[in-house]
């Protein structure tokens, strides 16, 4: 359970988000929405303790995150930055890196077995010996999600994980994130630009308007008026082939 109380964040003197109150149960997937520059990434980075908040508290399973020592925090919180330049290591090594917060010096059999499991889970087992620099964008994103899972976290923070992926990979990666969050009971926050992907995969939303305000609720409760207010684009909500979607008008 992630509990956020009175969280305010800003960037360079400008307040992006004021007084956020949010409770997310384990297994829930929250889509972080909002226009460019609204502070989505800053919020994710703040929760990952990479950016200092202007005020407020964040607790994970009752423990304040800012009280945790670095490695202890990395065992609880996994964070995927917006862009990662791949290093010239194998897929296996890249995922094993997620064990770093758990390791002293050598990776034990338990660590290796866990990485094996994750690679199977993500359908990456056949690529284990491939270099990350030779992967496609979708494969690399899955490897990075694999590393995050290898951290064995309680909270998963993904900053635009599908932004430069093609349609098939967007669906596949987000389905994977959704399934993983439920199976492993993770609290998951995903920054998304595509509202329709959010409608399809997320349970809840957090919509930032960039002026310090925000809306939050169940994904089904997101209204065209809220979207118009945040993005300044008029939309209508419809349904096609059983999937709800927003269409700009």
């Amino acid at each position: 359970m992630l509990r956020i109380e009175a969280l305010s964040i800003g960037h360079g003197g400008r307040t992006l988000l004021r007084g956020l109150e949010l409770e997310l149960p384990a297994g829930a997937l929250l889509a972080v929405l909002g226009p460019n520059g609204a502070g989505k990434s800053t919020l994710i980075r703040t929760l990952a303790q990479l950016h200092p908040p202007q005020g407020g508290r964040v607790q994970l399973d009752g423990t304040p995150l800012d009280r945790l020592e670095r490695s202890a925090r990395a065992r609880q919180v996994a964070y995927l930055p917006q862009q990662s330049r791949p290093a010239a290591v194998t897929v296996y090594e890249a995922v094993l890196l997620g064990r770093v917060p758990h390791l002293r010096w050598q990776a034990g059999e338990g660590d290796l077995a866990l990485v094996d499991d994750i690679l199977d889970h993500l359908g990456l087992a056949a690529l284990a010996a491939r270099r990350c620099t030779e992967l496609s964008g979708g494969e690399l994103q899955k490897v990075l999600i694999g590393r995050a899972l290898a951290q064995d976290p309680r909270l998963l923070l993904l900053d635009e994980p599908v932004n430069h992926l093609d349609l098939a990979n967007r669906l596949e990666v987000l389905a994977l994130v959704q399934r993983t969050a439920r199976e492993r009971d993770l609290v998951t926050l995903v920054v998304l630009h595509d509202l329709n992907l959010a409608l399809r995969f997320a349970d809840r939303f957090l919509l930032l308007d960039g002026d310090g305000g925000h809306r939050t609720g169940d994904m089904t409760a997101l209204t065209p008026e809220q979207i118009e207010q945040a993005y300044r684009v008029a939309v209508v909500r419809g349904e096609l082939a059983g999937h709800p979607l927003f269409v700009p008008i």
Binding site: A48, R70, R73, R85, V100
Partner: peptide, 23 residues
């Protein structure tokens, strides 16, 4: 040599390394 794992994490960028608990 003992910082080997941490340097491996740094190869993926500073934020990735911080998220893995590297100072």
């Amino acid at each position: 040599t003992r910082t080997g794992w941490q340097l491996n994490a740094m190869a993926w960028g500073e934020d990735s390394a911080r998220a893995l608990g590297v100072a």
